[in-house]
Simulated scan of single mutants.
Amino acid sequence: MTEAVPNTPASRNWAVLLFLSFVWGGAFMSMAVALEQYVPFTVAAGRIGIGALALLAVVAITRPADLAIKNPKDLCFILLLGILNFALPFSLLAWGIQRVPSAFAGITMGTSPVFVLLLAYIFVPDEQIGPRRIAGVFLGFVGLLVLILPEVLAGQVSGGTVVAKIACVAAALCYSVGAILIRRAPPIPPMAFTAGMLTAGTIALTPIALLLEGLPEITGERATWALLYAGILPTGLAFLLRVVLIRSAGPIFMSLVAYIVPLWAILLGVILLNETLSFSTYIGAGIILSGVGLTQLRLRKKR
């Protein structure tokens, strides 16, 4: 038996990776703009619903047979992951971005690989963790403390800033738990699986949004366009590019996007929305990215 040879990323793979990092980094900014007009659960439900419609349309045109999912186990996984990957984290982010800069939310997404590493070590016995990965996890949590603790020490807990920051971190944790469950999910075609998760997230969150916030009034063009962008590009169609990239260059290469998304989130938030970030936020971002890079160093050297 010959040993599997890792895929070698081509220039087009790097182009797709950079494009995805830009799209996902800008998603936090677009949510902040949408929240100028709409309320949090409406933004979250709208983003998921628009993404579901866009991706369902693509799958219906390209691979309609994949949408015929009837196995109860498959449907349970789709519903659970629709809540964990979309409904819950999008709600947490929409609520949190009202109280912290969108760039901060983007930085917290950089912690996802650290959470995934910890969860994989606990729940996936095949995963190996050595000194570099332990150091990387430690650095990641030090970075989290640097992001969150300054307001606690300054006595600003009552203002809601700390709780909002914790909500953003909790959203990253939701994505990480979802990633572990996806690994254990049945072999459902990936595009149909993603479209199903988006649809399940929409079904789960829309009644809550309507009950708590009522029907939205579409009056602000800027906020509406931002919501449409957030739903179609980073929530819906970007997942198709993600599938293409994983199949052509491999999942390890795809994980590099976690290093770049926070940088785009900071750049776009500061330049386009005039957001002001504290010095501790930049320090925390640097520590988190260093920790994530350290956890991946062993795998990259092995490749």
Rank of each mutant, 00 (worst) to 15 (best):
V5A: 14
T8M: 03
A10S: 13
N13Y: 01
L17R: 10
V23W: 02
A27I: 02
M29Y: 13
S30Y: 01
Y38T: 06
P40G: 09
F41W: 09
G46A: 08
I48R: 11
I50A: 03
G51D: 05
V58G: 06
V59Y: 07
V59N: 08
T62G: 11
A65S: 11
D66T: 14
L67M: 14
I69W: 11
N71P: 10
I78L: 13
N85Q: 12
S102L: 05
S102A: 12
T111S: 08
Y121R: 14
G130M: 03
R132I: 00
R133L: 01
R133T: 12
I134S: 09
G136Q: 03
G140S: 11
I148Y: 12
L149Q: 07
G155Y: 05
S158Q: 10
V163K: 14
A164M: 03
A167D: 06
C174N: 04
C174F: 07
A179N: 15
A179S: 15
I180H: 05
L181R: 04
R183E: 05
R184Y: 08
R184V: 00
A185H: 01
I188G: 09
P190M: 09
G196L: 05
L210R: 14
L211K: 14
E213A: 04
E213I: 02
L215R: 15
L215E: 06
E217P: 00
W225E: 00
W225V: 01
G231Q: 04
L237Q: 08
F239Y: 15
S248Y: 05
I252A: 09
F253I: 00
F253S: 01
I260E: 03
I266H: 14
L267G: 11
L268E: 06
G269H: 09
G269T: 13
N274V: 03
N274Y: 10
F279N: 14
L289M: 12
S290T: 15
S290R: 07
L297E: 07
